[in-house]
Design a protein around this nucleic acid. Structure first.
Lengths: 115, 115
DNA sequence: GTAGGATATGTTCGGTTGAACATATCGCAA
DNA sequence: TTGCGATATGTTCAACCGAACATATCCTAC
């Protein structure tokens, strides 16, 4: 049983997709590599980054064009902070709600094999 | 800032939409009335109910056709239980994660007016 | 035995969303 | 100064999803 959690403030939304994207950008140093790993087009990955950068007061991702390796991207302090806070909320929800989540799972019909 | 939470087990999913639908069915005693109130077609409401009833070992909604008032629907014990557990998980997540949620909100750009 | 209201399903149509394709630009290194 | 790799954007097309429309069925009350 997995838990997906999304925060919304007006039209601004932040959920598991953007969180994973931020994480992969942090690890790979590249928007395109992050998107590739997640099976999405570069364009989509870039649009999500753009959304986040405009939604927050400070950009969450800092990107540079050109250079030896063509460019790259990295998480800003704000980006790291948002990611950490989000991860923490999810972890808390999973821990604190474990009993209720298990109770629901017990009522489920079996069979759903994998994935 | 609102929080949306969805539980997934394989292809089976349960989130805010189905939870609200169950709640309204419990209160109105009708699938069509519940769907109407939520601004969805009867067909969609019925399909969601069908999904839930097949996903769980016991049906969450019990419906009857015909009769004086045409028929109706009511929550089963299993339905009430699932709804209560889900509500509890959400409430716990909101309470326990309040600090982190607020921290993210503080980093947001303002302006997003309403809705 | 017929009218009414809600469940139960099928079908069609339009909008939204993402995938795919296509360029343009940038800056360092060779 | 040319090539490379990644960012930055626009455009087009197919798939998916829900809305709307259309019936069929059921059962009680009158």
């Amino acid at each position: 049983m997995t838990l997906r959690l999304r925060l919304s403030y007006g039209s601004v939304r932040f959920g598991p997709g953007k969180a994973e994207l931020l994480e992969r950008i942090r690890d790979s140093g590249s928007i395109s590599a992050a998107g590739r790993d997640m099976g999405m087009s570069y364009k989509r990955a870039w649009m999500l980054v753009e959304e986040m950068n405009t939604a927050f007061r400070l950009p969450l991702v800092d990107s540079t064009r050109g250079g030896a390796k063509g460019g790259g991207a990295r998480l800003t302090d704000a980006g790291a902070a948002v990611l950490a806070h989000y991860r923490r909320v999810v972890a808390l929800a999973e821990q604190q709600g474990a009993a209720d989540i298990a109770a629901i799972e017990d009522l489920l019909a079996d069979i759903p094999d994998e994935k």
